[in-house]
Design a protein around this nucleic acid. Structure first.
Lengths: 227, 227, 227, 227
DNA sequence: GATGAATGAGCGTTCATTCAT
DNA sequence: AATGAATGAACGCTCATTCAT
């Protein structure tokens, strides 16, 4: 198996967690804990207890829990980006590429064996439930200057690039792309917690829900850009 | 001037703030303070200092600061709802009504003299910056059961109702409506803080930005539902 | 017994501790604890444990432990000031007044029954051991602007006033006064901990030591100003 | 240029910093950092960052930051001692020697080219601002037993020796000497931070201030011992 | 000898909340 | 109804220090 890892913006961490045992345990257990407790109730104290290490040790890797959330979501966007690359690089037709990208984004997430210490299913739940908290803060402008949103930006631009290949004259490719990325995740949240705000049905099984989500998003994109 | 006030879900407060002087000062100053400090740094202590009252007094009106945010956003959604009613009730054509509703949603917000102790401009900024925090919590299911999201739900259904009149066969009217409501506010956030995720231009003046936003949203809706 | 209390600068505390039971216990036990542990090892946590109250409650009275030390030392200087007033107000001769003031400053300290919740003997030890820490900080300029040193200043100026009455032409009355106040306390510290820096003898009993101290200070003052 | 260095008490350090490159950088940068941040905010972490070395490396030279402060102040007292030797060894008259010693103590400090990695001007500021912290600790008795105050003691005794030559019958030579050494530095602190406690004028230029300081100290000493 | 990694301990502070008046 | 006082709980963070290499 190829030993791949994403190069995430080095501002996201103090010491790169991918390269040490403790770092990898921090990643692994923080995903589990945030998934279990929610980001508000997640603390470095609890994480340190979980991995049987010291709070101060966690601070050697991440400045604070916000940066850790940034790191995890950035990792997730990078992962989607990478999977879109794989899914699209053999396709030459613009429409098919866009369609394939949307499929990657809306498909149910399953564990990716290429990344041992990341539970992608749990991470996906975290992104659905907490992602907005990376930017709805008073530090957003500073964080953006430091490039912490590079992962999301990059994914967004990939998508808007695909859009503009299919429909060169469309003026709102970035807005549409960011709306699509957010809406995809938000609808999954609504489906579970605020079902009145979506049309997918809670009682359906996972694959049906995602099928509907895909249809909704695909229609929205292709019709909006005029195909 | 008509003395109107919205009937908000009584679960949102302990004691109705609209009916007492202290209650009204709580509303007024909490809008100012949250706008100024952000929701995270806003506390009942600071609010009490501001209105020269006691922390415990604020607790007489709102169970906690989350419920207060709920109250403010619910008020905002009610206000939009009410303004859509006014803007659409003379229109008989479905398309025109949908268009008018979108216009209300995307238009720049100005002070509404009908509501003395609410600064709608600041409240709009709060909704843009903090609204997601009403539901991205561990209490979301319980809050939903208590009907705290009634305001947003209701607005969403009004919009999806308009959509289904124009396009009865469209299957995702709720999802589209919620996406539109969120996207409208999120794009305004991106415009200011993460400009790479939108196509509106920071340097343009407010009315141009909102014009572009309106075009983006309107196109997305009408094309998606097939008109 | 007259119910007297010193009006200390209100910037020294958040809520005046003299007026509540908890406040008085804070004063009483902080004196005991600082005397016992030293200022560095003294914390609000330990104080709260001691008085069987909560850390947060102490913060209602004092912003931090530094301000508390300020308060205690200010109280001490006010107390000396007040005792000098009593000791001198019946004297008309300048030399005698100055001599009496020096006697108050250099005399051994005994419990003053007028102030129930202050252990003056322990407080005197604290002043000897910790007083310099009120001004050897990065906040000294700000603290001085806020008037936190008013107590010491005031005592110093009383003394320099006495000096200038005896010797109107002497140019360094303030410097001599502050030197005398500090030296008196420092020599007591040296006597115990760094005996090589003083000429009083550790083995002598307390009253002999203080007698020598008084002679040293009195000679220094009267000869320096030329009498 | 003569390659001189002071023999400081070996208890002050773990490994002598004068003999290695890293050791010299520790001295140099700790003076800069303590001068800049104050002793409280100075940490071995920050020092290690500054010299681009590791915290653990600093611990190879100094047991802790207190010992480092001891080392620096001891160096300073040794330096004064040495300069007094130079200034007095050609003088045979007791009064002139005492006067010369006082001049060395009260003169403005300028860089001494004989000691490359010590910035004497900054070190003087540190002594003025932090010196008392070497003995106002719970370890003072133990530190004294270990001889950590040898430098100050020694300087003090040199001065009291001079005093007793001029005035053999004076009983408080040590007390007067220690008072003089402390007062000289304290008055400089007061001049800047608590001007009400001194008679030197902030607005005057440095040499005038030091001239006044010298007059104050000289008068105090010579009149006290009766000349 | 020098360093990178890790950690135990605890500090200062704040918050949301309750209780008695 | 409104408020002043008090508090339990925990958070974020840093420091001094040690250990293994």
């Amino acid at each position: 198996m190829a030993d791949i890892s994403f190069r995430v913006n080095s501002k996201l961490f103090v010491r790169d967690p991918q390269h040490t045992d403790l770092g990898q345990r921090i990643i692994k257990h923080s995903i589990d804990l945030i998934d279990k407790l929610g980001f508000e109730d997640f603390t470095f104290r609890k994480l340190a207890d979980q991995i049987e290490s010291a709070e101060a040790s966690v601070y050697r890797y991440f400045e604070n829990k916000h940066r850790l959330l940034h790191y995890l979501t950035a990792w997730y966007w990078n992962w989607l980006n990478y999977r879109i690359d794989i899914a699209t690089n053999s396709l030459s037709d613009g429409s098919l590429r866009l369609k394939a990208a949307i499929k990657v984004i809306t498909d149910p997430k399953i564990e990716d064996p290429r990344f041992e210490f990341v539970n992608e299913v749990a991470l996906h739940r975290i992104v659905v439930a907490e992602m907005e908290k990376t930017y709805l803060t008073k530090w957003v402008d500073n964080d953006n200057e430091e490039g912490l949103f590079w992962g999301f930006n990059s994914l967004c631009h990939k998508l808007s690039g695909f859009i503009n290949i299919v429909s060169p004259g469309y003026s709102f490719a970035n807005s549409l792309a960011s709306t699509v990325l957010l809406a995809t995740h938000q609808q999954l949240f609504f489906l579970i917690h605020l079902p009145g705000l979506s049309d997918m049905k809670k009682k359906d099984d996972l694959s049906v829900q995602h099928q509907q989500l895909q249809t909704f998003i695909e229609e929205m994109v292709f019709r909006t850009i005029g195909c």
